[in-house]
Design a protein around this nucleic acid. Sequence first.
DNA 1: AGCATGAAAGATACTCAGTATCAATACTTG
DNA 2: CAAGTATTGATACTGAGTATCTTTCATGCT
Lengths: 148, 148
Amino acid sequence: MLTVEDILHAIEDGGYRATGSRRRLLETLAARGEGFTAEELVGEVRGVGRATVYRTIRLLLRQGLLCKLTLQDGAPRYSLSRVGHHHHVVCVRCGAVRDFRQSVIERILKDLEVGEGSAVVGHRIEVYVVCPGCREAGVATSPTAATG
Amino acid sequence: MLTVEDILHAIEDGGYRATGSRRRLLETLAARGEGFTAEELVGEVRGVGRATVYRTIRLLLRQGLLCKLTLQDGAPRYSLSRVGHHHHVVCVRCGAVRDFRQSVIERILKDLEVGEGSAVVGHRIEVYVVCPGCREAGVATSPTAATG
DNA sequence: AGCATGAAAGATACTCAGTATCAATACTTG
DNA sequence: CAAGTATTGATACTGAGTATCTTTCATGCT
Ligand SMILES: [Zn+2]
Ligand SMILES: [Zn+2]
Ligand SMILES: [Zn+2]
Ligand SMILES: [Zn+2]
């Protein structure tokens, strides 16, 4: 997992400035690490405005330093990125995020290109779970809703 | 693919009424079929209010008659559902949607449960493409952005 | 250290997607 | 047809994010 300093360096390498606001934001963000909303950040980091929070998120997304993922209902959520292509396992209760990668799946999705006549330009995979902690604490989960 | 009558019957079977607004909405929606936004529907169906369009969308989603999918940037899009669990291939240019299913992937994602200690409650897979039509008409595509 | 310059920040207004409220209307059933 | 409930429309509102515009900060130069 990337550290605050790693990220600030990456920002500078991209030709942007490592400012105080960005540092404070990154520290807040790193303290959460796995799974948070933009508004949570806005609420938690003090002395940094809403617009700056969103601008920084956009910057980090562009640099590939942050992941934007989608809950079952479409609600957005962010997670610090690890290097390289990967996907996410998200707890539908607490929003905790875990990364994963399965080269088999990558190969299968790449092969879709052939049967399709279309150029594949990307994909998204999200796996929704109830994590062990939430399972203990919680009531019964409704089964997989029709995703399609 | 489901017809308007199929869907109206399913609505009635769910204990809801097959009203004129719902019929008109479904006809507009079926004419598009593959890939549209809620606001496009609002604009295209006449004599049906915004709130009703969104309410009907929500109803159809609950009944599994409609799919809500997510573009690369997180923008929402809808598509008439086919029966059973499946995923989507979406053109990033025109928004056309094609369904697909790969039992291999289903099995792999189910196995994640084991390595995870968590109960898998669902997943989402979206494959982003430039469809043949758009590829002809268009400029060069930027390669897969960091999805993670 | 002092200053010029452009990047970044703050405030605010705005857009887009979707929900809540509530009075008016349309279905259904007796 | 009347009563009662589901549905609708209008409108206001929330949540997520962007645009604009003025002020402030970081940098590099002297
Ligand atoms: Zn992948
Ligand atoms: Zn579908
Ligand atoms: Zn699946
Ligand atoms: Zn990630």
